[in-house]
Design a protein around this nucleic acid. Structure first.
Lengths: 129, 129
DNA sequence: CTTGACCTTCTACTGCACTGGAAGGTCCAT
DNA sequence: ATGGACCTTCCAGTGCAGTAGAAGGTCAAG
């Protein structure tokens, strides 16, 4: 499979695939006589894993950790669970932060909705923010 | 007021103040004979506004829009209200996205908590993700 | 008169995950 | 044999909001 076909099959781009290879996420594939990359089916499964990792919000560095464990011959289940724990904690924090911010912004917006521009002092730029 | 004092007074750094000036958020201040920046009190109010804008999650570009309107001599209340509307909509979307993601990640984590590494197939890298 | 804290400009780098483009090689159909 | 779609490498840029560091100037205290 050439790089364009793999990109098509996995919904990504040739640029990204070469970038993943440079980043150590995809092993360098075989090459055809003329130097074209020649991927096997495993590459699709691997890219699927990378996609799943990205979809849960793992960084490429974290995805690579998992891949490295698998490539070392060990099942990475335990490490994956740890990463998911960390991710979940971060998500909860992020959601809480955004909800607090939302409350503040909603209040500001409601105040601004009744704004009387003449009350605004130049010095404050805008008193509704 | 020298740049270091202004940084101190507004809880930022001299680096950031020069960056804001370059970005058109802070007007170039007076200079002392020796070339030092010499700020007046208005700079504190302006930086306070920038801080409030940033705290609500506005980009520096959006903050600059507001400042430009004010500097043009108009009260920016209306534009601020629009920016807050946009920001609120974006926050709601962001929160909804994160909550959906949280649900997925929580499921994955729960599955992974009972992981049986021997069930993991090398091909999939890790079936718990 | 020197030390140290402050200031100046300038260029370049950070993190993250790509993305763009140039210059050139390959393959296949017409 | 030529056009177009594909591939190669390499270098550089994107967005965002700063941050780092070098080389040098200024100022007050001791």
């Amino acid at each position: 499979m050439r790089i364009g076909e793999l990109a098509e099959a996995t919904g990504t781009t040739t640029k990204t695939l070469r970038f993943y290879e440079d980043s150590g996420l995809l092993p360098p594939p075989e090459r055809t006589v003329s130097g074209y990359r020649d991927y096997d089916q495993d590459a699709i499964a691997r890219l699927d894993f990378i996609r799943r990792g990205r979809a849960t919000g793992l960084t490429l560095a974290q995805v690579r950790e998992v891949l490295d464990i698998r490539d070392a011959g060990t099942a990475p289940c335990h490490h994956v669970k740890e990463l998911l724990d960390i991710r979940l904690t971060a998500l909860d924090q992020q959601i809480a932060d955004l909800q607090a911010l939302r409350t503040n912004v909603a209040h500001l917006r409601d105040d601004a909705a009744q704004a009387n521009p003449s009350e605004c002092q130049s010095k404050d730029v805008c008193r509704y923010l």
